[in-house]
């Protein structure tokens, strides 16, 4: 699959291939989270909260130059790192590409388990919200021709 999302995924897979130890991998993830620009204060509300059983995620969607952009945040460090990863892959991509993306890179970097519904960390809900938002924008674009 080609496209902006696929090339970003490939870049991340290569980046993570440098780490043999789980600890290094998680530390890298946490650092990515620390560099994340969180959401605007106005979006840090229940309306933009993706509820997880264990950690919370906030998602701020928007449109810039016809592309879907996301800003996001979390109260837990690992979740925040995963959120940063998702934002890096999906934000600024065309809506149709976001909807179609299987996000298979998580498997390749050994973090697939975090996207399991049983993790209840808010990440599954966030990805669902991102795709829903992109789908809504894509159908709006299509109807406006």
């Amino acid at each position: 699959m080609s496209g902006i999302i696929a090339s970003r995924e490939a870049e991340i897979v290569e980046e993570f291939s440098l780490f043999d130890e789980w600890l290094d991998k998680y530390q890298h993830l946490i650092e990515m989270g620390q560099k994340l620009t969180g959401v605007d204060e106005a979006f840090r509300t229940d309306a933009y909260k993706v509820k997880g059983c264990q950690s919370q995620v906030w998602l701020q969607p928007g449109i810039e130059n016809g592309l879907v952009v996301f800003r996001a945040d979390s109260d837990a460090a690992i979740t925040k790192g995963l959120v940063a990863l998702m934002v890096r892959v999906l934000s600024g991509a065309p809506a149709v590409e976001i909807v179609a993306s299987p996000l298979s890179f998580l498997e390749a970097i050994g973090l697939r388990e975090h996207l399991s519904p049983t993790r209840s960390n808010g990440l599954v809900g966030m990805v669902k919200q991102m795709k829903l938002y992109a789908a809504a924008y894509a159908s709006q674009e299509a109807s406006h021709g």
């Binding site: 264990q54 109260d75 837990a76 460090a77 690992i78 979740t79 960390n121």
Partner: peptide, 21 residues
């Protein structure tokens, strides 16, 4: 430190604890 983060790291060390509410 968020309990979820601590639980994730402890799991990697083979330690099963419960984190959360």
């Amino acid at each position: 430190i968020h309990p979820y983060d601590a639980g994730m790291f402890l799991d990697q060390m083979g330690i099963a604890v419960r984190t959360g509410h």
